[in-house]
Design a protein around this nucleic acid. Structure first.
Lengths: 153, 153
DNA sequence: CACTCTCCGTGGACACGATCGACCTGAGCC
DNA sequence: GGCTCAGGTCGATCGTGTCCACGGAGAGTG
């Protein structure tokens, strides 16, 4: 994980479809060298996936909600987590410090679907209560921040 | 935006680095046809970007926080938003219904940096108060959900 | 110091993919 | 019927991905 790897990661965070040849030009190496480095970044788990970022409304997911979850005092957190994993509408899941154990980001098509989702969450064993906030609009999401060299001072 | 476009979007959400030739095989069209369709999806804004998804810890961003913002009663929301846009640590920004006008997702390297960020947010003109929750771990993030055909009923 | 091992790179070769232009086909409309 | 347009296929060309053999720098060792 040196400076060149960091540059590659930054370039691919900006545009995941850059060709190896183009990456090679940008970092001053040959294409095979870049190919190997990126392969190692992938298999070591630094790069998890390459995803197209899509306008949610265009694919029928116009409603975004952020949902805090309070667990029962005797809940098994792993079971709750596993139940959440089965629910496709939950796009992100954070385990939080504080009263609310989880914060979920969910996307659905309609308010009616959101209602169903909340009911389902409240029925999930181990869930004591939920608190839902509706996003009126997403100003931006997953904006990559510029990477600083390892000197994080 | 027909069934084939939807398939292309779904394939690219799963793996943004698929070649046009591979996409063409999957949807049963020729490579040039797919090339043109994807180009239109990009220029019409359905596909916003292609991003590599990176393990945040690997690039020195080990601390994730979710921050609710309450605005001053006389705040100019656009100005506040613009101020947030200048802060690189804010990866996502949702405009919310409810008491808290915004919910921000931020990533920083250390708790000390988080402290600085919160101070900066509280100093931002128009911001009355903030409420920060710390994510102890990210179980998953931006998981693409399976697309259903346009009949969302 | 010389030797060797390893890591990490380069350059060449070749198959595959991207992309352009020419052409084809079916739908809608005079 | 004959135009026109949208959106496809095919073929050709050129750039890219990817495999492989080779080479240089640096660490460890006699």
């Amino acid at each position: 994980m040196d400076t060149i790897d960091l540059s590659l990661v930054e370039l691919l965070r900006g545009n995941a479809r850059l060709s190896y040849a183009e990456l090679a030009r940008q970092v001053g190496l040959s294409a095979p060298a870049v190919h190997e480095r990126v392969g190692k970044l992938e298999s070591s788990g630094v790069i998890r996936a390459y995803r197209a970022e899509v306008e949610p409304e265009a694919i029928g997911l116009g409603v975004t909600a952020l949902i805090g979850i309070i667990e029962d005092s005797d809940a098994d957190t792993d079971d709750v987590l596993e139940a959440f994993r089965q629910i496709p509408e939950i796009e992100s899941c954070y385990f939080m410090a504080g009263v609310e154990s989880f914060l979920l980001k969910a996307r659905v098509g309609t308010i009616a679907e959101l209602e169903q989702l909340i009911v389902r969450l409240n029925r999930t064993p181990g869930v004591a209560s939920t608190r839902t906030g509706i996003a009126l609009s997403t100003k931006w999401e997953n904006r990559p921040q510029p990477l600083e060299p390892p000197t994080t001072s």
